[in-house]
Design a binder for these strands. Sequence first.
DNA 1: CTGAAAGCGCTAACAA
DNA 2: TTGTTAGCGCTTTCAG
Lengths: 363, 363
Amino acid sequence: MARVRISDVAAAAGVSVTTVSLVLNDAPSRISQETRERVRAAADAVGYAPSSLARGLRQQRTNTIGLISDQIATTPYAGRMLAGAQDVARRHGQLVFLVDTEGDADVERAAIRALAAQQVDATIYASMWHRVVRVPEGLPRDAVFLDCTPEAPGFRSVVPDDRAGGAAAARELVGAGHRRIAFVNTADTVDRPIAADLRFEGYLSVLAEAGVAADPALYAQGEVSARGGREAVSQLLDLPDEQRPTAIFCFNDRMAAGAYMAVRARGLRIPEDISIIGYDDQQLIAAEQDPPLTTVALPHYEMGRWAMEVALGIRAGETDATHQMECPVIRRDSVGPPPALVAKPSRRRTSHTERSHSATPER
Amino acid sequence: MARVRISDVAAAAGVSVTTVSLVLNDAPSRISQETRERVRAAADAVGYAPSSLARGLRQQRTNTIGLISDQIATTPYAGRMLAGAQDVARRHGQLVFLVDTEGDADVERAAIRALAAQQVDATIYASMWHRVVRVPEGLPRDAVFLDCTPEAPGFRSVVPDDRAGGAAAARELVGAGHRRIAFVNTADTVDRPIAADLRFEGYLSVLAEAGVAADPALYAQGEVSARGGREAVSQLLDLPDEQRPTAIFCFNDRMAAGAYMAVRARGLRIPEDISIIGYDDQQLIAAEQDPPLTTVALPHYEMGRWAMEVALGIRAGETDATHQMECPVIRRDSVGPPPALVAKPSRRRTSHTERSHSATPER
DNA sequence: CTGAAAGCGCTAACAA
DNA sequence: TTGTTAGCGCTTTCAG
């Protein structure tokens, strides 16, 4: 069966198409109440659904947003960004085109062209982790960058405030009384997450604030994984007692999970013997550790919302070029006061080699 | 500046719009090579980009697919489904509208209407976990269900073959020599994942095949989380030695992570003392356990691909109503042969209450 | 208070 | 081998 058009409604209601259009769009006009009702009834009766295509063509406005992302949900929590963006789009009657480029420049170019061809009203360019991105050629000037900062100036963007987040994490530890606070960073050098340096800076600033000198021995690096975290923390725990950290700030939750392993392998307890704080608040990791991991949350949902809101022209005022979003500390059970200095339990092993199943009691 | 239209190209090239259309669409026609080149050059010169809107309106075909999902990336790995779908769409020049309904029926209705108004060429209805869904009113008859089975018949759908997956997991354990194999299931009753029963059935069938009687004492339940898994497994480990399982099949990786905790708390080793197998292959959990968890993968990416392929009319032949997709076993290091029956190390505690920091050696 | 008609940008039938 | 023209379904001036 053929599509039912506005003219069918008009015929059914015994009016012109103009009238139907006016009525159904609630356009300001002097159409009688009686006619309005007749039109609406007719529309219902024939099952009329206006064509967005025709309307878009006519109005040159499609109520459609393009969202280009480099990697969809490679990082699991990043789906929250989509959800945030999706959410406000929906509430404003917008539909979103999602294009995943897999980081391929050709695909990206094609995507930009395709979205332009669709005459999307706005474009969002999202990265699945906070970094600096090259501005793809052809991207509309009013595109909004989500979870990344464009190399070129003049674009609007929203990113997590990783510096403040790093500071908040460190403050959490300092506030609990710690002085020997280690920082376990990612060792990534290529395509390095700028979050790495920002979080470290935040950490340093808080140490300075608190008047504690940063001890280079308390800085370790590893690959971003539980293994990497375990190895890095293991080294830290090899330090002589008086230098050993009483708290460790890990670049992210995956590394923190590795920290747990290393700590457990020594027979130390969290947080009694050592406090751990992570970053990212990955539900599947942080909340499920034993004890649950205190960490800093990345405001993915909120960033997604923000990006869509500026893309849609809500939030017109506060359009500073780049918006930093707060990363709140999520308090769980892995941070406590440092062990009393008097009792120096030296339960830890001296061996450098960890066995995998080291939870097994020593004998 | 106004949009450049096909007529602009025609004027620039000194030909008619028909010619331009024919050339740029590579339509079979007898246009001279010379003209073709002139047209293409002109198109480039004026920076022409055809309007998908106008074309869609004219052809009644939009090259656009609607993808409705209940919860976007609440379950992290589910993003892989989107990636799969996205991927084949892109390769076929299709753009996808993603709408997330958050499980709200009103939103769903609105989404269906909006997609119809956009005249999408096909619709995919995705659930973020395998279950039976009510068919939303107004959904096109040719919609494809992704990771869910519609209540009503007559629709095409793709789901993981959880029964075979459960069997594969059990077979992995039986093959390693185990006979006392526990099954730790989800205790969910509302909106119960049908995977729960299917995996259990697969497990039972393999036990039967192998001639081992299913021991009701080796069935445990818990909430789907590390905690739930830990509690359930903890009970299992309380069984008398001769009844205690030598291997445990957990409903999913999260529960398996809990199993690790419970096992460690007893001072037992994986896989030397007890083998564990999970389900889902959640990277952040399975691959990062110590030792890495052997598990069964959910073929999310492949299901996404499949759904999009049937939606696009590729795979016309094999359109059985519901397609089951294989769940392959991912071998890592948590499965080994059962401990030799002669040496019965009874290291485990007898207390029922586990302390959180039980990795600490007993003293 | 309501209707006629132009036109958004394109494709496809038909003409030349 | 190429051009003319109708029309996809809608909104929106402009007339009545």
